[in-house]
Simulated assay, not measured.
Amino acid sequence: MEIVDGIRVTSAARTIVDTARCLDADRAVVLGDSALRLRPAAHPALPAALTAADTRTGIAAARRMCAFLDGRSGSPGESISRLRIRAAGLPDPVLQFEIRTAGGAFVARTDFFREEFGVVGEFDGMGKYRSADPGASAETVRREKLREDAIRAQGYEVVRWTWSELFHFDDVRARIDAAARRRWR
């Protein structure tokens, strides 16, 4: 137990374990990744929280989910993308990888990266493209285009996907495979 604003609450680690026992994988990973992003100190406490819940219903699912969680996922869409990437049989990607020029200058931080494929994966939640000011939206699109061009200039392929594609991930998997083939021609 912890005290937050004078109120007794379960610890972040216990809350992560309890929700992982009860929720489907998408929700458990979104919640767990977010909790670890906000409270990274909860990560080393997860094994003890799992042990404490050892006889409770859903503990096997909680163990699987807790082993998968990563506070570096930057959004719910990125968390669900990781689940889809694994379900598609692809290796787990490196999260929030920084691409730099040969001279060390920062180019971009990527959502997903696989050096051996030469492919950068980007989940587009679309929120950054919405603005009441059309000029601001256009500027955001322009900056994303320049960022993607800079990543490609370093020799990497870029594959982007959106929320709706998370539920038809075979199409994304095909684009990732095609990008990897192009990269190694």
Results as ranks from 00 to 15, higher is better:
G89R: 07
F97G: 07
T19K: 09
W184S: 14
V4L: 10
A178N: 04
Q154T: 03
I3M: 14
T10R: 04
P76D: 06
R130I: 11
R152G: 11
D124H: 10
S81E: 01
A49W: 09
I176S: 08
R152E: 13
H168V: 05
V9W: 09
M1N: 07
R14T: 12
L23G: 02
A102T: 14
P47C: 13
T19C: 04
R114K: 08
Y129Q: 02
A48N: 04
L90G: 15
S73Y: 04
V30Q: 14
F123T: 00
T162M: 02
A13D: 01
E144L: 12
T51D: 15
R143A: 14
A87R: 12
S75N: 06
V159I: 08
V94G: 04
I16V: 11
L46G: 07
A88R: 10
R100F: 00
A88Y: 05
S75D: 02
G135Q: 08
R72V: 06
L69Q: 07
R21F: 11
F106W: 08
S131Q: 07
K145R: 14
G118N: 06
G121R: 09
R56Y: 13
F169A: 03
V120H: 06
W161S: 01
E115N: 05
A67D: 12
R100E: 07
M65I: 15
V141T: 02
F106N: 13
P91I: 00
